[in-house]
Each structure stands twice: as C-alpha cells, then as structure tokens.
C-alpha cells in the first residue's frame, strides 16, 4: 500500500516509556505513527492500523513480573482483535518490555494468543539490570522485519533490561523454534560467531543466545534489544558520523513490507 496511507499504533499504559523514540524512528521513515493509551485502543480498535507496536518501559511498574499485568490485559481485552490483526498478516512488534508483554500474553512464540505461555523472559543471569550495546546475528533474513537484512549479518544495538533471559518451555520446543525459522536474532560475538552464553556478549544468559523471535510467517516479532536507540548515527557509541545506525535496518524492513502490503 501507499506508505502515506499506512499507520502505526504504538500502544502504551502507565509505565510505558519508550514510545516516543519509537515514534521518532517510524516517522523518520515516513510512516504515520500514533501513540495510543490502552484505554483509547479499547475504544477505537486496531482496524485503521497496519503496524501494532508494544514498546519498552515498565508497564504497570513491572509489578508481579515484567510485562505480566499488561500481558494479561492484552489477552483479556483485545485477544480477538489482535488475532484478526495477525491473521490479516499485519505486523506486530514488541521491543523489550513489549516483548515481555507478548510472551506473557501468549502472542509469541506462536503468533496466536495461547492461554499458557510457551516461553519466559526470566531474570538476567547476572542478577542485575544490563544497559549495554550487544552484537546481534540475523538468523533469518527476508522476513517482514528483516526484509532489509540478510541471514548472517551482524547488527550493533543496545539492550536495557533486568528480565531478558529467554527460556523456552522445553528442549523440543526450542528445536521446533529453530527448525521453523522462528529464531530471528541471536546474541553474537563481534566476529559473528554465536555468543554461546558468554557474558556480556550474551547479556542475560538467554538459551541458545536468543535475542528476538518471530512466528512462522514472520509478521509477529519480539526482541529484547532496542533498535530505536540505534537508529541515528549520533546515537551510536563509536563511528558516530554516519547518518544512521543498524537499528534503522529493522525499521526499513517494516517499511518495505508495508509498501507491498
């Protein structure tokens, strides 16, 4: 579709705090992005949007568990709406707390809102909050979110979380995720080889160095690192005199997909 007609909804509740930088990134690429409180989403629905973003933050103070309360709210209040959205092959993206919400709501790993989550984002192995830049290896290029990336490319993007250790429900389920191409980003060494749990390259102890996953079709994606914080060159820790950072590549993929949608 014509990009000028496409619209993104960036959802928020009390405690969400990464909505504005998400809006800046999307708008920079020419997409209309609206930040909507859950209350407004309940009134307006999602039909006018093609991209639904759950941004980072500490939704509802992350009381109970990170993302748990908002996850349950999403599940109980907009389940069918969101399922229809996903069925129409529109895009759903969760970053950091948004990823945690997606896991808690059961949206990921499968892309359908199941009752019991099949994975968890547990406390970091280091037992503390980790704000640092990490290297990500693209495990599957060409998906809606990696349309501007090739398999095997390395991105440098920061993380900032206390609960990001991806744990699948079982070994078999992990295998399934890998085989079906649902593992989208893995923490890696600067050289591109897998981090294999080495701290701080794998900043949280995620199983199989998983940093981001998607559903089979690839239109539902969650990741712990923050691409919106590595969007512009001036946000980067080194080599700052370039116009854009690696985070932009992910948003570029979104734009490509929406243009074809």
């Amino acid at each position: 579709m014509d990009l000028s007609r496409a619209k993104a909804c960036i959802a928020r509740v009390g405690g969400t705090n990464c909505d504005l930088e998400m809006k800046v990134a999307l708008e920079n690429l020419g997409l209309t992005a609206e930040v909507l409180h859950m209350k407004q989403i309940l009134k307006r629905g999602l039909s006018e949007y093609q991209l639904f973003v759950l941004p980072g933050g500490f939704s509802y103070g992350d009381y109970v568990r990170a993302g748990a309360i908002w996850g349950k709210e999403v599940h109980s209040k907009i389940k069918s709406e969101l399922e229809a959205f996903i069925d129409e092959e529109k895009l759903v993206m969760g970053v950091c707390n948004g990823f945690q919400v997606m896991i808690e709501a059961g949206i990921l790993p499968n892309g359908e809102l199941v009752e019991v989550p099949k994975a968890a984002l547990a406390n970091n192995m280091s037992a503390k909050y980790e704000c640092r830049w990490v290297y990500l290896r693209v495990e599957r290029g060409g998906t809606p979110f990696t349309g501007d990336l090739e398999t095997g490319e390395i991105l440098k993007i920061p993380v900032g979380h206390g609960e990001g250790r991806f744990i699948p429900a079982s070994e078999d389920f992990l295998k399934e995720l890998i085989e079906e191409g649902c593992v989208l980003f893995r923490y890696s060494m600067p050289s591109g080889e897998a981090a294999e749990g080495r701290y701080p390259y794998n900043p949280n102890g995620s199983v199989y160095d998983i940093a981001g996953i998607c559903n089979r079709k690839g239109n539902v994606m969650g990741m712990m690192p923050h691409p919106e914080r590595a969007f512009f060159g001036w946000q980067l820790p080194e080599e700052r005199n370039v116009p854009y950072g690696d985070g932009k590549r992910i948003f570029q993929g979104i734009i490509k997909y929406l243009q074809k949608y």
Partner: peptide, 21 residues
C-alpha cells in the same frame, strides 16, 4: 554500577557515561 542504570532510554544520549565496548 553504571550499567545497572539505563543511560540510553529516550534514545537521546549522544555521549554516554561509558565509552564504547
């Protein structure tokens, strides 16, 4: 200590308290 404080949130931090890798 510094890495337990989020110094990147808001996406406006041009020069960070800790430089580079």
């Amino acid at each position: 200590v510094i890495r337990t404080y989020d110094h990147e949130v808001r996406g406006c931090t041009a020069i960070k308290p800790l430089q580079g890798d």
